[in-house]
Amino acid sequence: MTNLIEISGVSKRFGGVIANSQISLNVPEGGITGLIGPNGSGKTTLFNSVVGYHPIDEGSITFEGQEISRMRVPQIARLGLLRTFQQTRIYGKMNCMDNMMISVPQRRMPLARMFSKFPAEVIDRAEAILEFVGLYQKRMLPAGSLSFGQQKLLEFAMALINEPKVLLLDEPTAGINPTLINGLIDRLRRANEDFGITLFVIEHNMRVIMNLADNIYCLAHGEMLAHGTPEEIQNDQRVVDAYLGAH
């Protein structure tokens, strides 16, 4: 398997705080890669570095062999590298259908297309994906009126219609009730298998990430602590110590 994202030697400081120090990891194409670590270990900072939210201090990040560490957020997004947010972000006053249709990829959009209507196949596709995540009935409601869990599903659906090559998910199951979590795991796996989207997932829920990912990286205190299959990570004493606070 080739690597879609290659991160090597990336460091990021905020003033005196070293959020990431010499992080190297690879996200193989077609797989589901997990990223775990205690609170404040630098997972979201690493995500933000990858999608271009802030410049990195050193190191390199490549996507399909192309250096992206100096590119800006919309440029990177148009390459097909998309993220969802820990605090769910949807367009609150727009209805779900508009939320979906605005998320259709705009990679090579000529200027005149700005003023076009949405084609019928886009509408059909938006409806189909909303049905896939179970929000079809609520498609005409303002997205801001949905519950938190439903907003999370909507954000996931918006990411799917964007047809990214890689989807970076920042805690997809946080704040979702346990019965919905199973449905979400199932949908994430289907997005990976049926739509062929590579996933890179930050997750706190161990049960979820151990079931979902095929290889896992663990961060602690801004440094790479361990890497391996779910079984290896579960049995790694350093990971257990990091989570339970033993030093």
């Binding site: 972000r89 367009y91 605005i102």
Partner: peptide, 15 residues
């Protein structure tokens, strides 16, 4: 409208 509701998100989606 998307820019009104969440401009950062719109940028993150490549708009």
């Amino acid at each position: 409208n998307a820019i009104r509701d969440d401009e950062e998100k719109a940028e993150a989606m490549g708009i």
